[in-house]
Simulated scan of single mutants.
Amino acid sequence: MQPRLWLLLVAQLSALHSSLALHQTPGSLMVQTHQTAILSCEMKTSRTNMRIYWLRQRQAPSLNSHHEFLALWDPMQRTVYGNNVVQKELTVSQNGPRFTLNLTRVKPSDSGTYFCMVVGNPELTFGKGTQLHVVDVLPTTAQPTKKPTTKKKVRRITNLLTRKGPSCSPITLGLLVAGIVVLLVSLSVAIHLHCLWRRARLRFVKQ
């Protein structure tokens, strides 16, 4: 059957069929531009003469969204590619029940939802899909660093050390000066009286 006819059938049934018989991983994948994206699809039931298809939806999955045929892998280990597929950038391989789709040198236009599909009789069995996001720069998960608080502490200590005490008023200064003058005068008077008393006593003793 022609790939275009398969695409028509997929467009009608992709939103209605999702079977546990196909285990597709990962559910979501973010890859940086020019890197490699690896998608896998594993059969949980052994079947002979099985063909597996890989399809892509560039828009959100819906009944009206368009599917692109990427590649078909058959039991003879042959791969049939879609018309617009660059074979050097897309390879399909098998390892037992696991099928792998490798996308090399991906670009943002490769973003979309990728489905693996197996043709049965008469049903089509789909994987749950892998959402591929191709970005130029991967988002970082590092938490923002906290600003050091050392400068604030140093400023607080400096402010405490350089803070000036309360200024003295003129009245306070005047009272301090007057008190000092009174003490000096009283001291000088006491010394003078002591000298006079001593002289008088010496005269009395001589007489």
Rank of each mutant, 00 (worst) to 15 (best):
G129E: 01
N49I: 01
Q2F: 12
N83D: 13
Q87A: 11
M30A: 03
V181T: 15
W6N: 09
R4V: 07
A71V: 08
K151I: 14
T158I: 14
V185K: 07
S188R: 10
R198H: 11
P144Q: 10
Y114F: 13
L138A: 00
P122G: 14
G174Q: 13
V86R: 12
V137E: 03
N84A: 13
H34A: 11
S167T: 12
V31R: 00
W54D: 03
K146C: 05
T141R: 13
P26M: 05
C195M: 09
R203A: 07
Q59F: 05
A71I: 01
G82I: 04
A15Y: 06
T149I: 08
A71S: 08
G120M: 06
L8Y: 07
Q35N: 08
T172F: 09
L132M: 06
G179R: 06
S167W: 07
T145R: 10
L161D: 00
A190M: 08
V85L: 11
L161K: 02
T45F: 09
N83S: 14
K151W: 09
V118M: 09
T172S: 15
V118F: 02
R51T: 09
S46M: 03
H194C: 08
P166A: 03
V135S: 13
H23F: 08
K206F: 04
S167K: 12
K164A: 07
G82C: 05
N95Q: 15
N64W: 06
S46C: 00
K147E: 14
W197A: 15
L160I: 12
Q2R: 05
N159T: 12
G179V: 06
R51P: 02
V182K: 10
P108Q: 12
G120N: 04
E123D: 15
F99A: 03
T100Y: 08
R47F: 07
E68I: 02
P61W: 00
Q32G: 03
T145S: 09
D136W: 01
P75Y: 02
D74E: 15
Y53N: 02
L124T: 04
L7F: 04
L176D: 12
Q143L: 15
L9S: 10
E89R: 15
S19M: 11
D136K: 05
S18V: 03
P26F: 01
Q131I: 04
P108C: 06
K151E: 14
D136F: 08
V80F: 12
V86T: 12
L138G: 00
P170K: 10
R4C: 05
V10Y: 03
M1N: 14
H192P: 09
L16N: 06
N84I: 11
P144T: 08
H66S: 09
M50C: 13
G120V: 03
G82H: 01
G120E: 09
V134P: 07
R155G: 03
L132C: 06
R199E: 04
R198W: 06
Q77I: 02
A21D: 10
T36S: 11
N84L: 12
R47D: 07
R47E: 11
S169G: 04
R47P: 01
V85R: 06
T45P: 05
W54F: 14
V154L: 15
L161G: 00
L103N: 04
T45K: 14
F204Y: 10
M43S: 01
L90H: 11
V85N: 07
P122R: 11
M1F: 10
Q87K: 08
A60H: 07
S65A: 05
L55D: 02
E42D: 01
I52G: 00
T158W: 13
P75L: 01
M1A: 13
P144F: 05
L29I: 03
T25R: 10
